[in-house]
Design a protein around this nucleic acid. Structure first.
Lengths: 110, 110
DNA sequence: ACGCTATTTCGACAGAATTCGAAATAATGG
DNA sequence: CCATTATTTCGAATTCTGTCGAAATAGCGT
């Protein structure tokens, strides 16, 4: 995980429609949802949905697998974990933490 | 936490410069960093930095406190936790979960 | 091959984001 | 009050985003 990737993933999730799509897929679990299923729930034009799915795909936040004429979308849980980790990682590494008196167990000078 | 707020926070963090700012502040801990300190590290025009800080402030991701002529910026850790929670919340609520055998060996994936 | 359904690509448009320098404001010290 | 430092606001140029409908493509069943 690096800054550019994390930022592009954040940017992808920074659109309300895409965040809805993503959360639907996160909720859906490993079975995922077909594009058409998403469209029914979201009630947006297919072209718009396709555009957003591509963004999420490019950001590696979702995967797609063909099943006949339908395309199954799934959340990339690994990417989600990494992104979450990236946000909280190194919290307070350069200073004092909120509720802890001191960081006695760690090197004070870095 | 709701979709609109989460999306606006994601959008804020979706810009590489802002993500750098935010992570600097997360690292900095409760002491935060003055705007000038951020500028020195980022090496960007003050007006650009001010613009980005305002975005992060509007998104409630950081706070600012005046200390004389300098303005101290701090990460809003509460908001960070809520945002992280929002992403992972209700994971697989509508479907089967992944039966991943917790392999911590590969964390370098995008 | 043909028709049917699912999904994507194209082209266009309005609106928003990013960036910068110059000028303005805020706060302190002498 | 004036000088100095810290930070923000303004205005403008450029680029990016989100959205849509129409047309194109992909895969399957017959």
């Amino acid at each position: 995980m690096n800054l550019e990737i994390a930022a592009s993933q954040m940017e992808s999730l920074g659109n309300p429609t895409r965040l809805r799509i993503y959360r639907m897929l996160v909720r859906a679990g490993i079975d995922g949802l077909p594009v058409g299923g998403l469209q029914q729930r979201l009630e947006i034009p297919a072209s718009t949905l396709s555009h957003h799915c591509k963004k999420l795909l490019d950001a590696n936040l979702i995967t797609q697998e063909r099943n006949g004429t339908t395309l199954i979308c799934r959340a990339n849980y690994r990417a989600m974990s990494n992104l979450i980790g990236y946000l909280a990682d190194e919290c307070c590494a350069d200073g004092r933490c909120e509720d802890t008196p001191t960081r006695a167990s760690e090197a004070a000078d870095t």
